[in-house]
Design a binder for these strands. Sequence first.
DNA 1: TTTACATTTGACAAATGATGTCAAGTAAAA
DNA 2: TTTTACTTGACATCATTTGTCAAATGTAAA
Lengths: 102, 102
Amino acid sequence: METVGQIIRAKRESLGLLLRQVASYLDIDQAILSKIERNERKPTKDNIIKLAEILKLDKEDLLIQFMSEKIAYEIVDEDCASKVLKAAEQKVKYLKSNLVKS
Amino acid sequence: METVGQIIRAKRESLGLLLRQVASYLDIDQAILSKIERNERKPTKDNIIKLAEILKLDKEDLLIQFMSEKIAYEIVDEDCASKVLKAAEQKVKYLKSNLVKS
DNA sequence: TTTACATTTGACAAATGATGTCAAGTAAAA
DNA sequence: TTTTACTTGACATCATTTGTCAAATGTAAA
């Protein structure tokens, strides 16, 4: 299973782009991008959106990978992780059905 | 569907405990507990554990409610929320199977 | 080997968000 | 009207996140 970092690095290299080129498009230091690609730092949502643009990756797919990775790391240490995700699904449904902008 | 705050308030009142009594057990100001019960602040994990103790609630259940609520709020605004949760399930499985302590 | 370039690393700074305190406010019962 | 429980909002403190920078490392061509 590929991490977001691995996906990004593979695609960047296949496009022949340099860290500093992509980082400049994201408006961050290349050091951060280097770390993101090696899973040493987490990208922001904005990073992901711009990465999808410049690397020609599907934006929704990449966002799903990004968010699910974040959630997975939050709960992987719990032995009730699976129950948490199922409960979260119910809560999301409930929240969406009651969604009133505040 | 009950929120963690609602569960806590209902149980605290049914036990006849005061905000300041419970808050003191949690080692926080009663203002925070008041806000937690009204979903104006999020409890910490430690808060949840101590709340389960003093309110005689099932600790695992309460933790599941707490964590799933947190996750639900993180993704409720995404229209791909359901896909994210499914992807997260896969990632958790993968991470757990490869779990090596670092 | 030297040079040039891409990437990595770690120390640190700035910004943001989470967590908490406090004191004054409301409301209702004694 | 005094007391009691709770609520509210301004603010302080602290941790985490996000970023910068410059030096170190690796690598391959001149």
